[in-house]
Design a protein around this nucleic acid. Structure first.
Lengths: 212, 212
DNA sequence: ATACGTTTCAAACGTTTGTTTTGGGGGCTT
DNA sequence: AAGCCCCCAAAACAAACGTTTGAAACGTAT
């Protein structure tokens, strides 16, 4: 990243700053000055700040979704072998596709996702649904196959519960690990946290339905 | 809320606008004009925008935590009866304390919590830990008693997983219910969503530990 | 070498932001 | 009635924001 082009330097810097402080709290001046480019470069190359935000997400979501799509296609060819654990592992593997080199990019990715959801500016929600809604539906359909005892609608809700737990955890991974280290004198690796999260999610998705 | 004092009118309006659009995206002018008060009133009564944000949280968290503290004290007198379900129900009951009249205030409360967590870089994190860390530790200790097979550190992580699922779900309650309605032609009440969430959480907290 | 499209740069634009100032009413006490 | 204190209102403030501008610098093909 030492002497990359202007566009990439902007994207590299923007995704870090956005993840650290949020979208509205990160000014174009902060991005461009830290990236070592001119202030006008953002509007020249991307058109606007909104477009820059979307470009940052595209750089994450395109490899993530294409990888996920491919893996889901593989699974569809052998429907009997589809389990919750395999589907969740598929997500994990897809997330690896976004970390080109640095493993910390996965954390940034989820941190941004959390921001996108909570700040939910109108344009981002539309952007997600239009560009990546397809893959998400595909995943949802497969998950419904994996847990035939759970009605599709219940699967829908539980996926969102799981999504919340995941985004929340991975977006706050470092602070949480620090608390764990100080309270229990145990240093967990991100991978170990991930394992714990996955068993929690599997347990939740398979849980007994509430008495209606 | 028709002709309340200036301070309350500001707080009432601010909490709604903050929940809708976030902290940075909500200007004091938007708050004061909608509240029907003068722009300078915020700085006069609260001192700054940061102080207003904290005041909004205090109005939610003080009744919530004092109610929660009281209920936890009751539970401590009879440790044998403490189960996950009872603890989660305790949280639910405490949340009811924040909705003075309007039931939708619970959603606002969690929406704000989600915002606070995702944007939490400086003053809010400190504010939470200093003012409400005590009650949280107390809850954590009780939960560890309720699931003796799960080591305390695992409880710690699972509570945060559950916290993420809860905040994520309740902060996006209305959009999620809309999707559910359009995709499954089923209209769930917030209470029904809550029931589903609770069984998901109980299943996750009780799930089998990952093979280490 | 000249001309051309692309990229970079410093500077300025017009808005909007949070905050401060100033001054003028009520309602109290003395 | 005078003084005091709390509250409100209009205006102005400085700073920061995203965006635009016009010219300079660049590489490249003619």
């Amino acid at each position: 990243m030492a002497q990359a082009g202007t566009v990439d330097r902007i994207l590299d810097t923007a995704e870090v700053l956005f993840a650290q402080k949020g979208f509205a709290e990160t000014s174009l001046r902060a991005i461009t000055s830290k990236a070592g480019v001119n202030l006008a470069a953002v509007n020249y190359h991307f058109g606007s700040k909104e477009a820059l935000i979307q470009a940052v997400f595209e750089r994450f979501l395109n490899p993530f979704c294409s990888r996920l799509d491919g893996l889901l296609a593989e699974l569809e060819s052998d429907p009997d072998s589809v389990t919750i654990e395999r589907l969740l592992a598929t997500l994990s593997q897809s997330a690896v596709a976004v970390q080109r080199g640095e493993p910390q990019r996965v954390a940034i990715f989820f941190r941004l996702s959390g921001l996108a959801y909570s700040q939910a500016q109108g344009h981002l929600r539309r952007f997600f649904r239009e560009h990546y809604g397809e893959v998400f539906s595909r995943f949802l359909r497969q998950l419904a196959v994996a847990v035939p005892d759970v009605p599709p609608m219940e699967v829908f809700w539980r996926v969102h519960f799981a999504l919340g737990a995941t985004i929340f955890t991975l977006s706050g991974m470092d602070p949480l690990r620090a608390i764990c280290r100080s309270d229990f004198a145990v240093t967990l690796s991100p991978q170990q946290v991930n394992d714990r999260l996955l068993s929690f999610l599997a347990g939740g998705i398979r849980a007994a339905l509430p008495a209606s």
